[in-house]
Amino acid sequence: ILQTYRAIANYEKTSGSEMALSTGDVVEVVEKSESGWWFCQMKAKRGWIPASFLEPLDSPDETEDP
């Protein structure tokens, strides 16, 4: 089962193997590399994304803190 994550910042791809993101995009993580790059898919797009640009979809938003 794939894990679902949300983009927390815009990411512009710098090579053909990467995938561009916009803040709020929801992606499915296909593979996690120890290098800190994750292979993700979103609709018909697939590519590598730095893991630091993603957060788990089920994590609470910062605005929901008590």
Score class of each variant (00 low, 15 high):
residue 1 I to E: 15
residue 1 I to K: 13
residue 1 I to F: 11
residue 1 I to V: 10
residue 1 I to N: 13
residue 1 I to Q: 02
residue 1 I to D: 12
residue 2 L to E: 15
residue 2 L to Y: 15
residue 2 L to K: 15
residue 2 L to A: 10
residue 3 Q to D: 13
residue 3 Q to W: 08
residue 3 Q to M: 15
residue 4 T to L: 12
residue 4 T to I: 11
residue 4 T to F: 14
residue 4 T to Y: 13
residue 4 T to H: 12
residue 4 T to G: 07
residue 4 T to N: 13
residue 4 T to A: 07
residue 4 T to C: 08
residue 5 Y to N: 00
residue 5 Y to A: 11
residue 5 Y to G: 03
residue 6 R to W: 02
residue 6 R to K: 12
residue 6 R to E: 04
residue 6 R to N: 01
residue 6 R to D: 01
residue 7 A to G: 04
residue 7 A to W: 01
residue 7 A to R: 00
residue 8 I to P: 01
residue 8 I to T: 13
residue 8 I to G: 03
residue 8 I to N: 07
residue 8 I to H: 05
residue 8 I to V: 04
residue 9 A to Q: 07
residue 9 A to F: 07
residue 9 A to R: 14
residue 9 A to S: 11
residue 9 A to H: 09
residue 9 A to E: 09
residue 10 N to L: 03
residue 10 N to M: 05
residue 10 N to G: 06
residue 10 N to D: 14
residue 10 N to P: 11
residue 10 N to H: 06
residue 11 Y to E: 00
residue 11 Y to G: 02
residue 11 Y to Q: 05
residue 11 Y to M: 07
residue 11 Y to A: 02
residue 12 E to D: 10
residue 12 E to N: 11
residue 12 E to M: 07
residue 12 E to K: 11
residue 12 E to I: 08
residue 13 K to I: 12
residue 13 K to D: 11
residue 13 K to L: 06
residue 13 K to V: 09
residue 13 K to G: 10
residue 14 T to V: 10
residue 14 T to S: 11
residue 14 T to M: 09
residue 14 T to H: 08
residue 15 S to F: 07
residue 15 S to P: 08
residue 15 S to Y: 08
residue 15 S to N: 14
residue 15 S to G: 07
residue 15 S to H: 13
residue 15 S to M: 10
residue 16 G to S: 15
residue 16 G to R: 10
residue 16 G to H: 14
residue 16 G to V: 14
residue 17 S to R: 10
residue 17 S to F: 09
residue 17 S to E: 15
residue 17 S to N: 14
residue 17 S to D: 14
residue 17 S to C: 09
residue 17 S to V: 10
residue 18 E to P: 03
residue 18 E to F: 04
residue 18 E to M: 05
residue 18 E to C: 06
residue 19 M to P: 02
residue 19 M to N: 00
residue 19 M to Q: 02
residue 20 A to Y: 05
residue 20 A to Q: 06
residue 20 A to P: 05
residue 20 A to R: 06
residue 20 A to T: 14
residue 21 L to S: 01
residue 21 L to Q: 01
residue 21 L to D: 00
residue 21 L to N: 00
residue 23 T to V: 14
residue 23 T to I: 15
residue 24 G to T: 02
residue 24 G to Q: 03
residue 24 G to W: 01
residue 24 G to E: 03
residue 25 D to C: 03
residue 25 D to M: 03
residue 25 D to L: 00
residue 25 D to F: 00
residue 25 D to N: 05
residue 25 D to G: 01
residue 25 D to P: 01
residue 25 D to K: 02
residue 26 V to F: 06
residue 26 V to S: 04
residue 26 V to A: 04
residue 26 V to M: 08
residue 26 V to T: 10
residue 27 V to S: 01
residue 27 V to F: 01
residue 27 V to L: 04
residue 27 V to G: 00
residue 27 V to H: 00
residue 28 E to H: 09
residue 28 E to P: 01
residue 28 E to L: 05
residue 29 V to K: 00
residue 29 V to Q: 00
residue 29 V to I: 07
residue 29 V to W: 00
residue 29 V to E: 01
residue 30 V to D: 03
residue 30 V to W: 04
residue 30 V to P: 01
residue 30 V to T: 10
residue 30 V to Y: 05
residue 30 V to H: 08
residue 30 V to F: 05
residue 30 V to K: 09
residue 30 V to R: 08
residue 30 V to I: 15
residue 31 E to T: 10
residue 31 E to V: 07
residue 31 E to P: 02
residue 31 E to N: 08
residue 32 K to I: 04
residue 32 K to W: 02
residue 32 K to Y: 06
residue 33 S to G: 14
residue 33 S to R: 15
residue 33 S to I: 04
residue 33 S to E: 07
residue 33 S to K: 15
residue 33 S to P: 04
residue 34 E to K: 12
residue 34 E to Q: 09
residue 35 S to K: 07
residue 35 S to C: 08
residue 36 G to D: 06
residue 36 G to F: 01
residue 36 G to K: 05
residue 36 G to A: 03
residue 36 G to C: 03
residue 36 G to I: 02
residue 37 W to F: 12
residue 37 W to P: 03
residue 37 W to E: 05
residue 38 W to S: 01
residue 38 W to D: 00
residue 38 W to M: 10
residue 38 W to R: 02
residue 38 W to E: 00
residue 39 F to L: 15
residue 39 F to K: 08
residue 39 F to Y: 14
residue 40 C to E: 00
residue 40 C to M: 02
residue 40 C to R: 02
residue 40 C to A: 09
residue 40 C to N: 01
residue 41 Q to K: 11
residue 41 Q to N: 05
residue 41 Q to M: 06
residue 41 Q to D: 04
residue 41 Q to C: 07
residue 41 Q to E: 07
residue 42 M to P: 00
residue 42 M to N: 12
residue 43 K to G: 15
residue 43 K to Y: 08
residue 43 K to C: 07
residue 43 K to P: 08
residue 44 A to R: 11
residue 44 A to P: 09
residue 44 A to C: 11
residue 44 A to E: 15
residue 45 K to W: 04
residue 45 K to D: 14
residue 45 K to M: 10
residue 45 K to N: 12
residue 46 R to C: 10
residue 46 R to N: 10
residue 46 R to A: 10
residue 47 G to F: 05
residue 47 G to L: 02
residue 47 G to T: 01
residue 48 W to A: 00
residue 48 W to M: 03
residue 48 W to Q: 01
residue 48 W to Y: 07
residue 48 W to H: 02
residue 48 W to D: 01
residue 49 I to R: 00
residue 49 I to D: 01
residue 49 I to V: 15
residue 50 P to M: 03
residue 50 P to K: 05
residue 50 P to A: 02
residue 50 P to Q: 04
residue 50 P to S: 01
residue 50 P to V: 00
residue 50 P to C: 03
residue 51 A to Y: 07
residue 51 A to M: 12
residue 51 A to G: 10
residue 51 A to T: 04
residue 51 A to C: 13
residue 51 A to I: 03
residue 52 S to L: 06
residue 52 S to V: 09
residue 52 S to H: 13
residue 52 S to T: 12
residue 53 F to Q: 08
residue 53 F to T: 10
residue 53 F to L: 15
residue 53 F to N: 10
residue 53 F to V: 15
residue 54 L to A: 02
residue 54 L to K: 00
residue 54 L to M: 03
residue 54 L to I: 05
residue 54 L to W: 02
residue 54 L to G: 00
residue 55 E to V: 12
residue 55 E to A: 11
residue 55 E to S: 07
residue 55 E to G: 07
residue 55 E to R: 09
residue 55 E to Y: 04
residue 55 E to N: 04
residue 55 E to D: 04
residue 55 E to T: 09
residue 56 P to E: 10
residue 56 P to Q: 07
residue 56 P to C: 06
residue 56 P to I: 07
residue 56 P to V: 07
residue 56 P to S: 07
residue 56 P to L: 07
residue 57 L to I: 15
residue 57 L to A: 13
residue 58 D to R: 10
residue 58 D to V: 12
residue 58 D to L: 11
residue 58 D to C: 11
residue 58 D to Y: 10
residue 58 D to E: 15
residue 58 D to F: 09
residue 59 S to H: 11
residue 59 S to M: 14
residue 59 S to W: 08
residue 60 P to V: 13
residue 60 P to A: 14
residue 60 P to M: 12
residue 61 D to Q: 10
residue 61 D to M: 15
residue 62 E to C: 12
residue 62 E to Q: 12
residue 62 E to F: 10
residue 63 T to M: 12
residue 63 T to A: 11
residue 63 T to R: 15
residue 63 T to D: 15
residue 63 T to V: 14
residue 63 T to C: 13
residue 63 T to F: 12
residue 64 E to G: 11
residue 64 E to P: 12
residue 64 E to W: 09
residue 64 E to V: 14
residue 64 E to L: 11
residue 64 E to A: 14
residue 65 D to A: 14
residue 65 D to M: 12
residue 65 D to I: 13
residue 65 D to C: 12
residue 65 D to P: 15
residue 66 P to Q: 05
residue 66 P to D: 07
residue 66 P to C: 08
residue 66 P to K: 05
residue 66 P to S: 10
residue 66 P to A: 15
residue 66 P to V: 07
